[in-house]
Design a binder for these strands. Structure first.
Lengths: 244, 244
DNA sequence: ATAATAGTGTCTTTCAGACAATATCGC
DNA sequence: GCGATATTGTCTGAAAGACACTATTAT
């Protein structure tokens, strides 16, 4: 005979420690551009499992400290870079019985875009080394767990978005020239973009404004721009092609 | 003094039941088109918590039965509809301290597209009722937990993808006319599409083939098509606009 | 003046939108 | 033939690509 119980009674007798449930973590690909190359942040693990192997920054949700997944991710980002980010995006969640030797586990993968300016990388007790590594097409890295797959998924998302959004603007410092911005797009896209098309697209989109200053070199000075902070990324009506 | 231990030793002493970790589940928006309307499958919960409330189908990962998240989702889908799906897509993962009264919880949200043909809905011990409900813009539903947000995220993804992919093809039966396909796109898009543009776009994309058969009515018979099974969804070079 | 990079003018190409014209069925 | 829906022809327009041209600085 089933006694009908209230939700309150149900909850008071509910104890998650009795269940076999998956471990849940977050991992992130933190992207930036340094020396004309796309880089992602990797850490060398100083703890078991996969001790000594390179991996994406990440870790378990602290259910007492974090109010939401976003909190967890921003906490991890700050631990390694000391900065917040202008663009944080959930990419994909990976979960299966095999990916972690501790058991069935789930990880929610994010990508963050930051400007490399003024970043000091921070090692801590969980990672003995922290480094920017160059990301290229068809590259083989031997990362811990399934972090290769995760990094690839994030890279793929970034490459896809460069074609129809203004997202790569978040990889640059606060002010930049249109040529610098174009170069950033090209680095991610992996091919060159026609200058006039790029500039028209961008200026028509009304997502950048002139600062009034110029970048001075040994040639014609370039107008400096900054991103209009509308909050949301601009979607272009057509996707951009590489050229030539 | 820290004794250096091997990964094997580390793992043998590792017990997840000792940790405070979030609950992890999957939830899914199963979409179909019935009577010229977009529908999603909802279940009425027969168990605590949120007993008696309407919710998206879903549930906990069974770490003994499921090898991966995909297995969990397909198991849930089959439990309610008895079918597999031609399109299953991870949409977004929701996780915070508040969404479930049992504690910090994470849910990985999926959307599935199925053809309504030959579907028999199945109630079971976790759901006393299973029903297709019509999805509309700006609609207010009072679903259990944060399932309103989840359903909205899935609906938004679907609406977005109708503009630049061939995805809605998965909502139709195996064979269909171009007019039927266009109507399906229009239902999701919420506005009409110019006939010639739609047909050109589709036929140029080379994603459907004529079956050779016709749909007979009291007018000119319409060619029947089926989807070429290339495995991946086609991306159109420009997004489609509503017209008129 | 020259080198170098910034920025523009303009023609072409591609593909969606508008809308009318034609085709083919049952009746 | 008529009504209904399927299918096609063709013009327009918007935005990207090609590519040559002009502009502005330091040296």
């Amino acid at each position: 005979m089933n006694k009908v119980i209230t939700e309150e009674e149900f909850l008071s007798s509910y104890n998650i420690h009795e269940f076999d449930i998956p471990l849940t973590s977050v991992d992130m690909a933190i992207f930036t551009v340094i020396d004309q190359q796309l880089k992602a942040l990797l850490v060398k693990r100083s703890q078991h499992p996969a001790k000594g192997e390179w991996a994406l920054p990440g870790g378990f949700i602290n259910i007492h400290e974090d109010k939401s997944l976003d909190d967890t991710v921003r906490r991890k980002l700050a631990e390694k870079t000391g900065v917040d980010t202008s663009h944080l995006e959930q990419v994909q969640t990976f979960g299966n019985a095999m990916r972690d030797p501790r058991g069935w586990s789930v990880t929610i993968a994010y990508m963050a875009l930051i400007s490399a300016d003024n970043i000091q990388l921070i090692a801590d007790e969980s990672s003995e080394q922290v480094e920017w590594i160059t990301i290229e097409n068809n590259q083989h890295l031997s990362l811990a767990f399934d972090h290769n797959d995760i990094l690839n998924a994030c890279y793929k998302r970034l490459k896809s978005k460069v074609q129809y959004t203004s997202l790569p603007i978040n990889l640059l410092p606060a002010t930049f020239t249109l040529t610098e911005l174009q170069k950033t797009f090209e680095i991610i896209l992996g091919s060159s973009i026609e200058k006039k098309s790029f500039r028209k697209r961008l200026l028509d989109a009304d997502i950048v404004v002139e600062t009034g200053d110029f970048r001075i070199g040994s040639n014609r000075p370039a107008k400096l721009y900054k991103a209009k902070k509308s909050g949301k990324e601009h979607l272009f009506p057509r996707s951009i092609q590489g050229s030539k």
